[in-house]
Design a protein around this nucleic acid. Structure first.
Lengths: 236, 236
DNA sequence: AGAAGAAGGATTGTTGACAATAAGCATGCG
DNA sequence: CGCATGCTTATTGTCAACAATCCTTCTTCT
């Protein structure tokens, strides 16, 4: 019953596209998220077009979509480049997440149907199961994504869902993917998820928002602490 | 000392572009915001290209940028159309604004410099002055935009600023522009702005966030009340 | 007469070539 | 010897034509 993160994303807006630019967008996006194209690296249109076997037109469109997701920057007459992985940006992202997902939790407590809530509990069960089985980090990350995804979807706010699941989602994935050295918050995160479900079940909107905000704020603090001690890794 | 909303926007990211697609984006955007191209209307590429004296390439890029701003929808092999002005969307927008601008106010209370705060007070003074002089609705709307803009910028969060001032800003303008029948909240809004400045001045982050959220939530309620009583205006 | 299917037209997606701009390099002058 | 200026080159921005897809309408069969 658990969805892979790829399905969860691609299924989002229905059949997004069989078009070339759409497929190129996905390919480029994954390459950037997984670090195959490094942070800060410049995107050369002819070489990328040759690499992905498309013309420059669809490739340019793919780049522009990635710009709108915040994964790449673009300067006129200069070109596009993958955003650098700076601490400031990660902090900023988590602050935005705190605001948006806090609101999502508030709305979810008010609007989620009982069916949706039971599905959410299923996701949590699977998450807990995988934790007990010690089934590795990756599945757990996916479980976390699924959990947050269900709540966001449950908010019933289409704009909020779009902002989080289309725009910021891949930025979050990129940061997690490329800074996946510390991931030992799982135990605490699981408890926080359980409290959150309890609040939503009781239709306690204020509590749900507060718990979600603290949940994300703590993750932010953990990242800030770990990353500020390390020297900046990207030269230039 | 008051900035026009156009300046405030265009100056945002520095010299955004002298490129054709950039200028076309601005032109198309304004046409949509001001309702010259009606909500729900389909965007025909050849005719628009002819109308704006550009080729289909830059025009397509302009449309895609507008998609990323949420002003137009796009379906593969079908085309783009201006988003319809439905009550659901407006409510959703104000909920997202409440979350994001609430966080902006919180961060602004912590991060704004004394110089920025004094500038904010200047904006508020101009706003108050225009209200006393009864200088018309339009200037007042601009004053409101400037006020919120200063706080968002003062948050020091680049992503937050980008999300609000680039993506959602024009959506807000469109809704305001095309539903500008009721605009009598100015008196109360001014008082709320003054309270907000007071909170920021005192570095009271929690209060600043709460005031901003109530400020936006009230505006949402007012709109919901006025619009839900009217019948749906867009046929089909 | 109504519905299903095919042909036509219109619109979008894609391509490769052309033009314009910016960065890098060498050269000349102070 | 250092800095400004002009050229060279690579890269981006733009264009017009081609291909693929979808919507509409007409025909035809039941």
């Amino acid at each position: 019953m658990i969805k892979s993160e790829k399905d969860a994303n691609e299924k989002n807006h229905g059949a997004q596209d069989n078009t070339l630019s759409g497929r190129t967008t996905v390919a480029l996006r994954e390459a950037i998220v997984c670090g195959k194209i490094k942070a800060g690296e410049k995107l050369n249109e002819p070489s990328l077009a040759e690499q992905y076997q498309v013309s420059r037109g669809p490739l340019r469109e793919a780049i522009r979509r990635l710009v709108s997701m915040g994964l790449v920057q673009h300067k006129p007459h200069v070109g596009a480049s993958v955003i650098p992985l700076e601490l400031d940006r990660i902090i900023a992202l988590y602050e935005v997440r705190e605001a948006l997902e806090g609101m999502a939790a508030r709305l979810a407590a008010r609007n989620m149907s009982t069916i949706q809530i039971s599905e959410l509990k299923n996701v949590l069960d699977v998450h807990r199961q995988h934790y007990d089985d010690n089934a590795g980090e990756y599945m757990q990350v996916n479980g976390d994504f699924d959990f947050h995804y269900q709540i966001i979807k449950g908010s019933g706010n289409a704009l909020l869902t779009q902002q989080l699941c289309d725009e910021l989602y891949h930025l979050i994935r990129m940061f997690r993917f490329q800074t996946s050295r510390f991931r030992s918050r799982s135990n605490r995160a699981l408890i926080e998820h359980e409290q959150l479900v309890y609040a939503i079940e009781n239709r306690d909107a204020a509590l749900a928002e507060m718990l979600m905000r603290r949940h994300i704020s703590r993750a932010k603090d953990a990242i800030a602490k770990h990353l500020s001690s390390e020297p900046h890794k990207q030269e230039h």
